[in-house]
Amino acid sequence: MPSPTYEERIKAYEGRAAAVAGVGKDPVNEPMIRHWCEAMGDTNPAYAGRHAMAPPTMLQAWTMGGLSGHTGRSEAYDELFALLDGAGYTSVVATDCEQEYLRPLRPGDEITFDALIESVSGRKTTKLGTGHFITTRMDVRAGGELAGTHRFRILKYAPAQGKPKEQPSPTDRSNPKNRSNPKNSRPRPVINRDNAGFWEGVARHQLLIQRCCGCGALRFPWLPGCNACGCLEWDTVEASGDGTVYSYVVMHHPPFPAFDPPYAVGLVELSEGVRMVSNVVGVPYDKVRIGMPVRLEFQRYDEELELPVFRPGETGESGEGGGG
């Protein structure tokens, strides 16, 4: 019987346990909730007091082992890392995480968890280098009841060597390489069940804002529940498209093939009162100013991707360059 290939060996780790019957080092407690809220600047009254709930995004915090780690850790994760290290994929970077909340956590809840290696990708080439994406899923329980799921994805990779090859200008859409080469295309937004309606609106050239059916508060970005009153029911209102630059940054580094730095990224306050991050286009990056009136438009980047961006309004300074 032939020996398994390298790809077969790493794929064999899919579905194996990464942690079994882990126990949170502390029950859900008021001091940790308070420290978290102070760090985040979150003053929601739902998170204060003995009978408060913990902010849902603290889900992973209750499972962290600190410097001394946890008991119940499986050897599978270490074995997989050793295998990848041996193949030359010695660097690691976190790429993203996803969380799903099923019930609130409250002071006194005892936390337990199990984790497994959900997927190991095939070999992928990225700007950082070539490697494999590893996704771990953790099921978090309170009193034995599933409270939420945390998915964490990393890239285990071999750093790219040497100077990257010169890329055609990503703003030159007449160059066929920019249309056909995926390395020169914009990164795609992550679309999930919580924000799918927003992107459906973008496809119709509508900028949709969530509105709570309980207290009427508008919110952006989209969330599964109201951060003012906790209501889970919502509808949408269409933004007028008028706004002002509340704050902005000018991106110089790192250079990605799909972008042409320097360019301005603005935090735009819409006339409805919510704020969103987007590119400020149609004006040199060094002419963007706080308080500048801007107007929504939808800009197409390739055959599949169209994004909301903002262009200076009638009273803003006009010009070319530096845009999205």
Rank of each mutant, 00 (worst) to 15 (best):
T43S: 13
I33P: 06
A46H: 10
H51N: 14
G69M: 05
G49D: 09
L67S: 14
G65E: 07
A54Q: 00
H51W: 08
T57C: 14
M64Y: 09
G49Q: 04
Q60N: 14
M58L: 05
P45A: 09
M32F: 08
P45K: 13
P55K: 04
G49Y: 11
A52S: 14
A52F: 02
L59G: 06
Q60C: 11
A39L: 12
P45Q: 10
G66R: 10
G65I: 10
P56C: 11
A48G: 08
N44H: 08
A61R: 06
R34F: 15
G41Y: 13
M58C: 04
P45R: 09
A54Y: 02
A61P: 01
L59E: 00
N44R: 07
E38H: 09
T63Q: 11
M32R: 03
G69L: 00
M64F: 09
E38C: 00
H51L: 10
D42Y: 12
G69T: 08
G41P: 11
M53N: 06
R50C: 05
T63I: 12
A48T: 14
D42N: 12
D42I: 11
D42V: 07
G69F: 02
A48N: 10
Y47L: 01
T57M: 15
A54C: 12
E38W: 00
M53P: 02
G65L: 03
A39E: 12
A54F: 07
M40K: 15
G41H: 11
M64N: 05
C37V: 06
R34P: 04
C37K: 01
H51Y: 11
M64R: 11
C37G: 00
N44D: 14
E38S: 09
M40C: 10
A61D: 06
H51D: 12
P56A: 07
A61F: 08
W36N: 00
Q60T: 14
W62S: 03
P45Y: 10
M64I: 09
G69V: 01
H51F: 10
T43L: 13
A46C: 02
E38I: 04
T57R: 15
W62G: 00
N44E: 10
M40L: 15
